[in-house]
């Protein structure tokens, strides 16, 4: 298992967090931790997601990136 930490910025739209969680599970990644907050001024949310999987992280990054309300996804570490 590889552990990864993702930072995802989003437009704070309906169920955006649920969409990210659904894609993460469906694509074969387990969630170890999550924190999320929204800047109410800009309506931009930032989500830190700790995941683990046997699968390459690019697979998940590409799929999360496809979600309509996502602004950016980055992998902060690769441990």
């Amino acid at each position: 298992m590889n552990n990864y930490q993702l930072t995802i910025t989003v437009d704070d739209k309906q169920v955006v967090l649920e969409r990210i969680l659904q894609v993460t599970r469906y694509r074969g990644f387990l969630i170890d931790g999550i924190s999320a907050d929204v800047n109410t001024g800009t309506n931009i949310g930032t989500i830190h997601l700790m995941v683990k999987s046997e699968r390459p992280i690019e697979l998940l990054v590409d799929q999360i990136n496809k979600l309509i309300d996502i602004k950016s996804v980055s992998v902060d570490n690769n441990t």
């Binding site: 309906q14 649920e18 969409r19 469906y26 979600l67 309509i68």
Partner: peptide, 14 residues
């Protein structure tokens, strides 16, 4: 249905 839609649409709105 909004919840159901997450797995079977490209995007959804309520």
């Amino acid at each position: 249905v909004f919840g159901l839609s997450l797995a079977c649409t490209k995007h959804s709105f309520q």
